[in-house]
Nucleic acid binder design. Sequence first.
DNA 1: GCAAAAGTGTTATCTCTACACCCATGG
DNA 2: CCATGGGTGTAGAGATAACACTTTTGC
Lengths: 236, 236
Amino acid sequence: MPTTPPSTVRLAVSTVIFALRADRAGGPPALWTPLVRRTREPQLGHWALPGGWLPPNEELETAAARTLRSTTGLAPSYLEQLYTFGGVDRSPGERVVSVVYWALLPNDEAARATIGPNVRWVPADTLPELAFDHADIIAYALWRLRTKVEYSEIAHALLGRTFTLAELREVYEAVLRRQLDPANFRRTMLASGGLQETGEHRAGTPHRPPKLYRYAPAATAPGAREPFRPTERTAS
Amino acid sequence: MPTTPPSTVRLAVSTVIFALRADRAGGPPALWTPLVRRTREPQLGHWALPGGWLPPNEELETAAARTLRSTTGLAPSYLEQLYTFGGVDRSPGERVVSVVYWALLPNDEAARATIGPNVRWVPADTLPELAFDHADIIAYALWRLRTKVEYSEIAHALLGRTFTLAELREVYEAVLRRQLDPANFRRTMLASGGLQETGEHRAGTPHRPPKLYRYAPAATAPGAREPFRPTERTAS
DNA sequence: GCAAAAGTGTTATCTCTACACCCATGG
DNA sequence: CCATGGGTGTAGAGATAACACTTTTGC
């Protein structure tokens, strides 16, 4: 079916948001993501990633954070550019290039996220049918999260400011979908130097109270592999 | 200095290109990259990354390959999206969002790349002053190449179709800027399963003729970490 | 005291690295 | 037969994984 080629390119910014949620109280947490219902054509009524057109005077990352806030009412603990999707046939009738970001929300805050008829949280690995290529995009973001957790210290972004080692391990287990040895996990984490004892303990447990830690990135060792975030020039 | 905000966003595609070149004949190769001289304002006359505006009916990756071909006259052996740079103040007076790709050229072909008054090859780690934020972009692309070489098998893309293990090691050494143990390198490479003997030997050496290999990706083992290239829908 | 999770110790195994050594070829 | 890089063997250091064991709390 030959369509008349679009005359312009429109630029959108979308965000894939991840947070941990327990299916049932006390059960192991899993990754969930919020979707919004489209209120315009094309694909009116379909579920889609939060996003919108890029205002000419707004930074890309700021636009991503804004759509995130308007969707969930929360600020992300982690936000990074994922990929730019620009296939000619992504959207019928017009050429849309989407710069997609991905974000992590802290656990305690995510519980009181905005809910409404046009926002819906779904498990990240069993998605409903989505608009455009958004299912592919979420799958890619999930892959990025899962691979990045293995070599980077981002898991803490899914927790609150302080957490126990067992809670941190639960995050890893939810993301990686496999059990980890508590003893070895503890040693690996402490050896990384990225954790700092708060001196406090989690109260209210039916057993020995665990220590609380906070994330405190180690002083960058010479020659260490820093993530190298591209330097974006912010508006003056 | 307050400037009047631009009313539209323009979308460009640029490409960082890497190839190996020996400084002197027989010497160890190093990474070089081609630049083009700008023939329009802004930044007229400055050296910049090859690129251009995105035509509404052209795929992003196709646009990157096209600018690469028009700059060097060659086809890339590797091409991947790097990052999208969209800072509000990247370009004076207008809002330009650049989807940047990075590419590798095979060694034998790179030798006969196009040269002209408006194309100039420079060593990738000692750049001249560049237009816009292009120096930052190349630095980021270099970082990506150097980190990706450590966990992925892309080094062969800087060589021809067949190569010796010593030649492959030279690529790694040029990219990583450090010497590698030939014995251990050999074993690691052969164990990866990505190399296949051709049965031929490199002739004309003043000593024992080395075996020639070709790149032949191993059958994907179950649970192996595939690179997961995002699925772009190609034009029908 | 008993259950349960926090936290520690120990050992087998695998991987990485350095380097000694033999092999094959041109001159 | 000699120089040179191709190619193999191997032992020590360090990281990883499995699991036994001790500690500390609530009930």
